[in-house]
Amino acid sequence: MRELNDADLYVKVQAKDKEALSLLYDRYEKLLYSFSYRIVKDGGLAEEIMQEVFIKLWKGKAQYSDDKGKFSSWLLTMTRHTAIDVLRRQSKEPDFELDERDSLHSDEDSVEDQVVWKERGQVLRTAVSKLKDEQQKIIEMFYFKGMTHKKISEEFDLPLGTVKGRIRLALKHLKTSLGEKGGVSDESNL
């Protein structure tokens, strides 16, 4: 029997197939947990996010369809939105700190199916470390902290109308830097 792809499993989950949810969970546990952790920097909150994400999946509250792109991208976006929501509910200002580990090469042991992730991560971290501090910071605040347009404009003392441009520029620099490394951009939808 062929292995069910993510979309197959998702369909089964919509039909309340517990086994399918369990398989999807196994497939994504480490990535989603690590991504959540990266956003909230707290193990307990990261687990809470996992719980909300899988409740949303189970209940079909968040609906996936082919026109939303790859399942994994959709799931990561849903996780990021959930994490940002959890951060906002914490009501306190998100602590901002550059994740110093971003500029390090992680040599943590990694199971086989995480090798690709690990390699991509290293290429990415190297590329990020080449950005100016302010560009690193704006990506952090915008993408990982979900800070609003208005907040970013205040934090960086930028007119509202230029915030979008700054973020784009930072992201484009990152992409360029990745391109030079012969990086992972061609897999960006993986």
């Binding site: 690590s34 990266r38 991208s73 990021r80 991509r120 991560g121 990020v128 990982f144 897999e187």
Partner: peptide, 13 residues
């Protein structure tokens, strides 16, 4: 597109 890879910045936990 520009942010598609960013989740992989996360350190495997």
């Amino acid at each position: 597109e520009l942010t598609g890879d960013l989740p992989y910045l996360s350190i495997p936990e």
